[in-house]
Design a protein around this nucleic acid. Structure first.
Lengths: 130, 130
DNA sequence: CAGCGTCGATTACAACTGTAATCATTTGCA
DNA sequence: TGCAAATGATTACAGTTGTAATCGACGCTG
Protein backbone atom coordinates (compact mmCIF):
# COMPACT_ATOMS: atom_id res chain seq x y z
CA UNK A 1 0.00 0.00 0.00
CA UNK A 2 1.59 3.23 -1.06
CA UNK A 3 2.16 5.57 1.82
CA UNK A 4 0.60 8.90 0.94
CA UNK A 5 -1.32 8.21 -2.20
CA UNK A 6 -2.54 11.56 -3.50
CA UNK A 7 -6.29 11.94 -3.12
CA UNK A 8 -7.96 12.63 -6.44
CA UNK A 9 -10.36 15.53 -6.05
CA UNK A 10 -14.01 15.16 -6.88
CA UNK A 11 -14.60 16.36 -10.44
CA UNK A 12 -18.10 17.07 -11.66
CA UNK A 13 -19.50 16.22 -15.08
CA UNK A 14 -19.09 19.70 -16.51
CA UNK A 15 -15.67 20.02 -14.96
CA UNK A 16 -14.58 16.76 -16.54
CA UNK A 17 -15.25 18.22 -19.98
CA UNK A 18 -12.76 20.94 -19.19
CA UNK A 19 -10.26 18.40 -17.91
CA UNK A 20 -10.54 16.42 -21.12
CA UNK A 21 -9.60 19.54 -23.03
CA UNK A 22 -6.53 19.94 -20.87
CA UNK A 23 -5.56 16.31 -21.12
CA UNK A 24 -5.76 16.59 -24.87
CA UNK A 25 -3.40 19.51 -24.92
CA UNK A 26 -1.64 21.41 -22.14
CA UNK A 27 -0.80 24.04 -21.20
CA UNK A 28 -3.35 26.26 -22.88
CA UNK A 29 -5.20 29.49 -22.25
CA UNK A 30 -8.78 29.76 -21.05
CA UNK A 31 -9.83 31.03 -24.44
CA UNK A 32 -8.14 28.09 -26.08
CA UNK A 33 -9.86 25.64 -23.75
CA UNK A 34 -13.21 27.23 -24.51
CA UNK A 35 -12.55 26.97 -28.23
CA UNK A 36 -11.58 23.32 -27.92
CA UNK A 37 -14.78 22.53 -26.07
CA UNK A 38 -16.76 24.61 -28.52
CA UNK A 39 -18.46 21.96 -30.58
CA UNK A 40 -19.20 19.67 -27.68
CA UNK A 41 -21.03 22.12 -25.45
CA UNK A 42 -22.58 25.47 -26.17
CA UNK A 43 -20.92 27.22 -23.26
CA UNK A 44 -20.17 30.86 -22.85
CA UNK A 45 -16.54 31.58 -22.24
CA UNK A 46 -17.34 32.77 -18.75
CA UNK A 47 -18.73 29.35 -17.96
CA UNK A 48 -15.44 27.77 -18.91
CA UNK A 49 -13.61 30.28 -16.75
CA UNK A 50 -15.80 29.45 -13.78
CA UNK A 51 -15.07 25.77 -14.24
CA UNK A 52 -11.35 26.40 -14.57
CA UNK A 53 -11.45 28.35 -11.36
CA UNK A 54 -13.27 25.66 -9.48
CA UNK A 55 -10.80 23.09 -10.75
CA UNK A 56 -7.97 25.35 -9.64
CA UNK A 57 -9.37 25.58 -6.16
CA UNK A 58 -9.66 21.80 -6.08
CA UNK A 59 -6.06 21.48 -7.26
CA UNK A 60 -7.12 19.52 -10.29
CA UNK A 61 -5.49 22.04 -12.57
CA UNK A 62 -2.52 24.31 -12.14
CA UNK A 63 -1.51 27.52 -13.86
CA UNK A 64 1.57 29.30 -15.01
CA UNK A 65 1.69 32.97 -15.83
CA UNK A 66 2.08 33.89 -19.45
CA UNK A 67 2.37 37.63 -19.47
CA UNK A 68 -1.04 39.15 -18.84
CA UNK A 69 -2.82 35.85 -18.57
CA UNK A 70 -2.65 32.25 -17.36
CA UNK A 71 -1.93 29.02 -19.09
CA UNK A 72 -3.75 26.10 -17.55
CA UNK A 73 -2.66 22.49 -17.28
CA UNK A 74 -4.09 19.40 -15.67
CA UNK A 75 -2.59 18.70 -12.25
CA UNK A 76 -3.75 15.10 -12.19
CA UNK A 77 -3.48 12.59 -14.98
CA UNK A 78 -6.42 11.21 -16.84
CA UNK A 79 -5.34 7.77 -15.70
CA UNK A 80 -5.56 8.81 -12.07
CA UNK A 81 -8.98 10.27 -12.56
CA UNK A 82 -10.20 7.28 -14.52
CA UNK A 83 -8.93 5.05 -11.79
CA UNK A 84 -10.67 6.87 -8.99
CA UNK A 85 -13.95 7.16 -10.88
CA UNK A 86 -13.84 3.54 -11.93
CA UNK A 87 -13.09 2.30 -8.48
CA UNK A 88 -15.96 4.29 -7.04
CA UNK A 89 -18.30 2.95 -9.64
CA UNK A 90 -17.26 -0.66 -9.30
CA UNK A 91 -17.35 -0.58 -5.51
CA UNK A 92 -20.69 1.13 -5.37
CA UNK A 93 -22.53 -0.97 -7.91
CA UNK A 94 -20.76 -4.28 -8.13
CA UNK A 95 -19.24 -4.68 -4.74
CA UNK A 96 -15.82 -4.09 -6.26
CA UNK A 97 -15.93 -7.22 -8.36
CA UNK A 98 -15.14 -7.10 -12.03
CA UNK A 99 -16.64 -10.33 -13.29
CA UNK A 100 -20.20 -9.49 -12.25
CA UNK A 101 -19.89 -6.20 -14.05
CA UNK A 102 -18.77 -7.80 -17.26
CA UNK A 103 -21.57 -10.29 -16.85
CA UNK A 104 -23.99 -7.44 -16.47
CA UNK A 105 -22.86 -5.78 -19.65
CA UNK A 106 -22.93 -9.00 -21.54
CA UNK A 107 -26.54 -9.46 -20.49
CA UNK A 108 -27.60 -6.03 -21.60
CA UNK A 109 -25.59 -4.76 -24.44
CA UNK A 110 -24.45 -6.82 -27.28
CA UNK A 111 -20.73 -7.17 -27.24
CA UNK A 112 -19.37 -6.78 -30.70
CA UNK A 113 -17.25 -9.53 -32.16
CA UNK A 114 -14.34 -7.12 -31.88
CA UNK A 115 -15.08 -6.63 -28.17
CA UNK A 116 -15.14 -10.35 -27.61
CA UNK A 117 -11.93 -10.74 -29.52
CA UNK A 118 -10.27 -8.04 -27.48
CA UNK A 119 -11.53 -9.47 -24.24
CA UNK A 120 -10.23 -12.88 -25.10
CA UNK A 121 -6.86 -11.43 -25.91
CA UNK A 122 -6.81 -9.56 -22.61
CA UNK A 123 -7.76 -12.56 -20.58
CA UNK A 124 -5.15 -14.64 -22.28
CA UNK A 125 -2.55 -12.04 -21.54
CA UNK A 126 -3.49 -11.78 -17.91
CA UNK A 127 -3.55 -15.49 -17.61
CA UNK A 128 -0.09 -15.70 -19.06
CA UNK A 129 1.70 -13.32 -16.74
CA UNK A 130 -0.16 -14.41 -13.69
CA UNK B 1 -34.84 0.15 -30.58
CA UNK B 2 -37.65 -0.42 -28.15
CA UNK B 3 -40.40 2.08 -28.65
CA UNK B 4 -41.08 3.71 -25.30
CA UNK B 5 -38.35 2.46 -23.08
CA UNK B 6 -39.12 3.76 -19.61
CA UNK B 7 -36.66 6.43 -18.56
CA UNK B 8 -34.91 5.51 -15.34
CA UNK B 9 -34.96 8.44 -12.96
CA UNK B 10 -31.76 9.91 -11.61
CA UNK B 11 -31.07 8.38 -8.20
CA UNK B 12 -28.50 9.94 -5.91
CA UNK B 13 -26.01 8.10 -3.74
CA UNK B 14 -28.00 8.45 -0.55
CA UNK B 15 -31.19 7.58 -2.35
CA UNK B 16 -29.64 4.44 -3.75
CA UNK B 17 -29.07 3.18 -0.22
CA UNK B 18 -32.79 3.42 0.35
CA UNK B 19 -33.49 1.69 -2.93
CA UNK B 20 -31.23 -1.18 -1.95
CA UNK B 21 -33.27 -1.65 1.18
CA UNK B 22 -36.42 -1.84 -0.92
CA UNK B 23 -34.88 -4.18 -3.43
CA UNK B 24 -33.90 -6.45 -0.61
CA UNK B 25 -37.40 -6.60 0.70
CA UNK B 26 -40.64 -4.96 -0.43
CA UNK B 27 -43.09 -3.66 0.45
CA UNK B 28 -42.06 -2.31 3.80
CA UNK B 29 -42.77 0.65 6.03
CA UNK B 30 -40.55 3.70 6.41
CA UNK B 31 -39.60 2.62 9.89
CA UNK B 32 -38.68 -0.78 8.57
CA UNK B 33 -36.54 0.72 5.83
CA UNK B 34 -34.76 2.91 8.36
CA UNK B 35 -34.10 -0.10 10.55
CA UNK B 36 -32.72 -2.09 7.63
CA UNK B 37 -30.34 0.71 6.74
CA UNK B 38 -29.43 1.18 10.37
CA UNK B 39 -26.00 -0.37 10.50
CA UNK B 40 -24.86 1.02 7.17
CA UNK B 41 -25.56 4.68 7.78
CA UNK B 42 -26.20 6.62 10.95
CA UNK B 43 -29.29 8.34 9.65
CA UNK B 44 -32.15 9.78 11.60
CA UNK B 45 -35.47 8.34 10.64
CA UNK B 46 -36.54 11.68 9.25
CA UNK B 47 -33.66 11.52 6.80
CA UNK B 48 -34.92 8.23 5.48
CA UNK B 49 -38.39 9.69 5.16
CA UNK B 50 -37.07 12.61 3.16
CA UNK B 51 -35.29 10.26 0.81
CA UNK B 52 -38.37 8.09 0.44
CA UNK B 53 -40.34 11.18 -0.47
CA UNK B 54 -37.88 12.31 -3.05
CA UNK B 55 -37.85 8.87 -4.58
CA UNK B 56 -41.64 8.92 -4.62
CA UNK B 57 -41.66 12.21 -6.48
CA UNK B 58 -39.21 10.75 -8.98
CA UNK B 59 -41.41 7.68 -9.38
CA UNK B 60 -38.61 5.42 -8.33
CA UNK B 61 -40.72 4.02 -5.51
CA UNK B 62 -44.44 3.55 -5.13
CA UNK B 63 -46.66 3.22 -2.09
CA UNK B 64 -49.72 1.40 -0.98
CA UNK B 65 -51.80 2.38 2.02
CA UNK B 66 -51.67 0.14 5.03
CA UNK B 67 -54.12 1.65 7.46
CA UNK B 68 -52.69 4.83 8.84
CA UNK B 69 -49.38 4.52 7.06
CA UNK B 70 -47.68 3.63 3.80
CA UNK B 71 -45.82 0.62 2.63
CA UNK B 72 -43.10 1.45 0.13
CA UNK B 73 -41.83 -0.61 -2.78
CA UNK B 74 -39.35 -0.04 -5.55
CA UNK B 75 -40.98 1.05 -8.79
CA UNK B 76 -37.99 0.19 -10.91
CA UNK B 77 -35.92 -2.95 -10.75
CA UNK B 78 -32.38 -3.02 -9.55
CA UNK B 79 -31.42 -4.44 -12.89
CA UNK B 80 -32.88 -1.43 -14.70
CA UNK B 81 -31.06 0.94 -12.43
CA UNK B 82 -27.80 -0.94 -12.73
CA UNK B 83 -28.16 -0.83 -16.47
CA UNK B 84 -28.75 2.87 -16.66
CA UNK B 85 -25.93 3.70 -14.26
CA UNK B 86 -23.54 1.36 -16.00
CA UNK B 87 -24.34 2.68 -19.41
CA UNK B 88 -23.81 6.25 -18.28
CA UNK B 89 -20.51 5.34 -16.73
CA UNK B 90 -19.22 3.37 -19.67
CA UNK B 91 -20.25 5.98 -22.20
CA UNK B 92 -18.83 8.84 -20.22
CA UNK B 93 -15.47 7.34 -19.35
CA UNK B 94 -14.76 4.68 -21.92
CA UNK B 95 -16.61 5.87 -24.94
CA UNK B 96 -19.08 3.04 -24.45
CA UNK B 97 -16.54 0.33 -25.09
CA UNK B 98 -16.21 -2.55 -22.69
CA UNK B 99 -12.80 -3.92 -23.57
CA UNK B 100 -10.91 -0.74 -22.71
CA UNK B 101 -12.63 -0.65 -19.37
CA UNK B 102 -11.64 -4.19 -18.53
CA UNK B 103 -8.14 -3.35 -19.69
CA UNK B 104 -8.12 -0.39 -17.37
CA UNK B 105 -9.11 -2.46 -14.39
CA UNK B 106 -6.62 -5.12 -15.21
CA UNK B 107 -3.91 -2.46 -15.23
CA UNK B 108 -4.85 -1.05 -11.88
CA UNK B 109 -6.33 -3.60 -9.62
CA UNK B 110 -5.19 -7.11 -9.32
CA UNK B 111 -7.79 -9.46 -10.63
CA UNK B 112 -8.08 -12.41 -8.36
CA UNK B 113 -7.63 -15.86 -9.77
CA UNK B 114 -11.32 -16.36 -9.19
CA UNK B 115 -12.10 -13.26 -11.20
CA UNK B 116 -9.98 -14.47 -14.04
CA UNK B 117 -11.61 -17.84 -13.87
CA UNK B 118 -15.04 -16.28 -13.96
CA UNK B 119 -14.15 -14.01 -16.83
CA UNK B 120 -12.82 -16.87 -18.85
CA UNK B 121 -15.99 -18.79 -18.25
CA UNK B 122 -18.07 -15.81 -19.31
CA UNK B 123 -16.12 -15.20 -22.45
CA UNK B 124 -16.33 -18.81 -23.38
CA UNK B 125 -20.06 -18.76 -22.87
CA UNK B 126 -20.55 -15.64 -24.93
CA UNK B 127 -18.35 -17.03 -27.63
CA UNK B 128 -20.39 -20.19 -27.74
CA UNK B 129 -23.81 -18.69 -28.24
CA UNK B 130 -22.63 -15.96 -30.56
C1' DC C 1 -62.90 13.93 26.00
C1' DA C 2 -58.03 15.48 26.30
C1' DG C 3 -53.47 14.51 25.67
C1' DC C 4 -49.93 11.66 23.59
C1' DG C 5 -47.72 9.02 20.29
C1' DT C 6 -47.19 8.04 15.30
C1' DC C 7 -46.84 9.11 10.61
C1' DG C 8 -46.47 11.58 6.53
C1' DA C 9 -45.80 16.49 4.84
C1' DT C 10 -43.53 20.73 5.01
C1' DT C 11 -39.70 23.54 5.87
C1' DA C 12 -34.59 24.24 6.66
C1' DC C 13 -30.21 24.94 5.29
C1' DA C 14 -25.48 24.52 3.63
C1' DA C 15 -22.54 22.51 -0.10
C1' DC C 16 -22.08 21.45 -4.81
C1' DT C 17 -23.45 22.06 -9.79
C1' DG C 18 -24.63 24.16 -14.10
C1' DT C 19 -24.63 28.21 -16.27
C1' DA C 20 -23.69 32.83 -16.62
C1' DA C 21 -23.22 38.17 -16.11
C1' DT C 22 -20.69 41.77 -14.25
C1' DC C 23 -16.60 43.94 -12.01
C1' DA C 24 -11.94 45.31 -11.85
C1' DT C 25 -7.53 45.58 -13.64
C1' DT C 26 -4.08 45.77 -16.99
C1' DT C 27 -2.39 47.46 -21.40
C1' DG C 28 -1.84 48.24 -26.18
C1' DC C 29 -3.43 51.63 -29.35
C1' DA C 30 -5.25 55.82 -31.33
C1' DT D 1 -2.70 59.85 -22.23
C1' DG D 2 -7.24 58.23 -21.94
C1' DC D 3 -10.24 54.57 -23.83
C1' DA D 4 -11.40 49.99 -25.54
C1' DA D 5 -10.17 45.15 -25.46
C1' DA D 6 -8.86 41.29 -22.88
C1' DT D 7 -8.78 38.53 -18.87
C1' DG D 8 -9.08 36.87 -14.33
C1' DA D 9 -12.11 37.60 -10.03
C1' DT D 10 -16.42 38.18 -7.94
C1' DT D 11 -21.20 37.67 -7.70
C1' DA D 12 -25.63 35.42 -9.12
C1' DC D 13 -29.03 32.23 -9.01
C1' DA D 14 -31.80 28.11 -9.43
C1' DG D 15 -31.68 23.01 -8.91
C1' DT D 16 -29.85 18.85 -6.48
C1' DT D 17 -28.10 16.52 -2.52
C1' DG D 18 -27.18 15.34 2.32
C1' DT D 19 -29.07 15.63 6.52
C1' DA D 20 -32.45 16.94 9.58
C1' DA D 21 -36.17 19.37 12.66
C1' DT D 22 -40.77 20.68 12.99
C1' DC D 23 -45.73 20.75 11.82
C1' DG D 24 -50.21 18.87 11.44
C1' DA D 25 -53.58 15.23 11.31
C1' DC D 26 -55.32 10.92 13.18
C1' DG D 27 -56.35 7.72 16.30
C1' DC D 28 -55.48 5.17 20.90
C1' DT D 29 -55.81 5.42 25.96
C1' DG D 30 -56.73 6.79 30.40
Amino acid sequence: MKAHMKAIPQISEAESVVMEALWTHSPRSAEDVAAAIGDERAWQESTVKTLLNRLLRKNAVKVQKDGRRYLYSAAITREQWLHSESKGFLDRLFDGRLAPMVAHFSRHRKLSAADLQELKRLIGELDADK
